[in-house]
Computed example of a mutant assay.
Amino acid sequence: MTWTLPEPMLSTPTPRPDLPPGMAGEPKWDGYRALLSIDAGRVELRSRRGTDLRAAFPEILTGAAQLRDGTAFDGELVVWEEGRLAFERLQQRTQRRGAGAARAAGEWSAHFVAFDLLLLNGNDTTSWPYRRRRTALESVFSARRLTAPWTLCPSTTDQDVVNEWLTWAAIGMEGVVYKRLTEPYRPGARSWLKYKPRETTEAILGAITGTLAAPRTVLLARYDTSGNLQYVGRTTTLAAATSASIAPLLTRSSGEHPWTGWTFSAGWGSRETLDVTLVQPDVVGEVGVDVARDSAGRWRHPVRWHRPRPDLSPTDVPHLEPR
């Protein structure tokens, strides 16, 4: 009887960066969560939602030859490009198959960053406490002398190390995950803690979803260094009171808008396009964002609207800076 990959253990946000007592911290990678096993000679590679990723990442399957049969990892698939984690390359790779996937593996090779051990020598280790699983995971890497595409995720109980990791936003680290040292691996449970640094900044209102009288979300913009108005991200759904406060500031675009003819995706990897209304790009807002950005400098995750900034003009807003 073969072993079956469990559901991944999950995290819940925490507002504080402090390392909680009795927990270890690990960097949060800007990649795709994945679980991998090799059992009875069969390799499995699945996403957090159960999607089979084997065809898209042939180099991971080839790399499984380094592992002993009866081994399973939980971890993150990442692509490293020009000194940073390149999520957009990783996303492009998930659509490739066959010869296209093989070419992409050569151009944008992926690594599997292992942060948990679920199966060892055919024995299920999910009931073990984190501390024991972590020691065993390190032993697998040292005993097998694993090389690319395998990478061992760092782990620490030192707050100074956590503080250093939180300065790595420029290379694509999204924050820190905290795991209780005595806790087993609990499939589907949100028992880990996730801290993601956020910053407050400004952006220009370029378009909305919903109606001018009741905007639902705001599409945000910044000028690039050439003076072109570029899309940088979209807010989360606005609360009713927030929507009502923004509506009087909006003016439907008259004449040619810099975004005329553009289409906007509903989200990363989505084929759904948004129904938007272009507005005069003369209103500035204060927003809260996390550190995840693509190579063009756009915010990858939904943005939190804070308040209008009538004291600022669009020229006061920071320029869009590619990473």
Rank of each mutant, 00 (worst) to 15 (best):
279 V>Q: 00
140 V>N: 04
111 H>V: 11
253 S>M: 10
153 C>Y: 12
29 W>H: 04
59 E>G: 14
318 P>N: 08
142 S>A: 15
297 G>M: 05
108 W>C: 07
234 R>D: 07
279 V>W: 04
155 S>M: 07
90 L>Q: 04
52 D>K: 13
280 Q>W: 05
255 G>H: 04
131 R>I: 10
26 E>M: 04
205 L>K: 01
301 H>E: 07
92 Q>C: 10
86 A>R: 05
221 A>G: 15
135 T>W: 09
305 W>I: 08
114 A>K: 01
281 P>M: 09
274 L>K: 08
154 P>G: 11
75 G>V: 02
273 T>C: 03
272 E>T: 15
190 R>C: 05
80 W>G: 03
323 R>I: 08
58 P>D: 04
176 V>E: 00
220 L>D: 06
128 W>F: 12
278 L>V: 03
167 T>V: 10
138 E>V: 13
15 P>C: 11
67 L>M: 03
252 R>S: 13
206 G>R: 00
49 R>W: 05
64 A>C: 14
290 D>R: 13
250 L>S: 01
94 T>V: 15
241 A>R: 15
110 A>L: 08
223 Y>C: 08
20 P>Y: 09
139 S>T: 15
42 R>L: 11
323 R>N: 08
36 L>W: 02
213 A>N: 12
52 D>C: 13
305 W>N: 01
184 P>N: 00
113 V>N: 00
191 S>A: 10
7 E>C: 11
298 R>F: 12
264 F>R: 02
192 W>T: 09
152 L>T: 13
211 T>F: 10
87 F>Q: 01
155 S>D: 10
72 A>I: 05
37 S>I: 10
264 F>V: 11
253 S>F: 03
27 P>I: 08
102 A>I: 14
304 R>F: 05
276 V>R: 05
177 V>H: 07
139 S>N: 14
25 G>D: 01
229 L>S: 08
281 P>F: 08
107 E>L: 14
38 I>R: 13
245 S>L: 02
18 D>L: 14
135 T>C: 09
